[in-house]
Amino acid sequence: MNLTRRELCFKFIPVVTTGLVLAACGPKQNRAPSAITESAPVIDPEKEQLQAEVTLAQIYNKVISDNEANNSYGIEGMPSSVPPVSVLTYVQENDVLIPALVASQPLVNAIPEFVQANSVGLTAFLETNLVNFFHWVNHSKDAGLEVTQLFRFLQMVKNGIVEPCLRGDPGTLIFSRSASSLNGVDLKGVYMFVNRVGGLANQWVAIVDQESGALITAYDSSLNGNNVATAKEALKTISREINRGASQTVPSMVNQNVRNIWQSTDPKTFTNVMLESLKYAMQVKLAELGYQLKDIGGNLASVLRTLPNKFTLFAVPAMVFCETPNIGDIICPANKDNKIID
């Protein structure tokens, strides 16, 4: 049997993926099983997790052998258009990329080996989808990083941009912009942290959601359209933001939640940034598919269960987002060595 990536992914959708998608999209911080859904059948999380891992290990081994034989990944890109039809109608007629998470240690362990063993095709796939999933990884290379180095990029944003701004270091600025609408486009309420300590030709900015603290983007604002760093472009970035209604603020006026997240020295707490960024990224993807989270609410699980098997799944090893591993948590099971793939 030739097992394509789509088939591989579809096999680990059931309980794990459904719960994880709900947990990642839902408004609650508590990711314990009881917070996922009240109507779901009672399951044994440990048993489910173990079964998922056994299945994944089997699938992984099968994929490795199949790919060695035919070097086929079954990879297809996301459709370029999303027609105004229901999600179910759409996925029945098209191959659709569904973002999802899989909290499986075998998968987390397997990815680096899989990338090494199949470097060309799978690396290209991961890079393409990471760029689509987290917008800010588009700017990783300007920081000298690969797109897969998520945590290193976030550390750079934390240590090199946001924290200096929150300390009020010389050469830093903070702008605040309330949620607004521009030409019918809804702009989020954001902070723009600016660090020009390295000069106007090396002015990095980080755009952070005012409420959640999620990183929306971070980039070198000195780079112009030709990717050349200039002081003129750096100044334009500031003037554009002011024209959109932003005003300068001071560290003490920044939302306490944002300060807590970005100034935390506890690496476990810092994973909140990834979690909040993940929620934003997932909302974008779901919106692209015609979803409105507010409309589907608790019905997302049932929608996912009815999806046909003709669709593509993007799996993210969710273990890296775990703040507090717990044996009763299917996202972050205890007694596992969390591993960051970069």
Partner: peptide
Amino acid sequence: AQDVGISPQSLA
């Protein structure tokens, strides 16, 4: 457009 910080629905 995403560098400006827009809502998921507007991005869609």
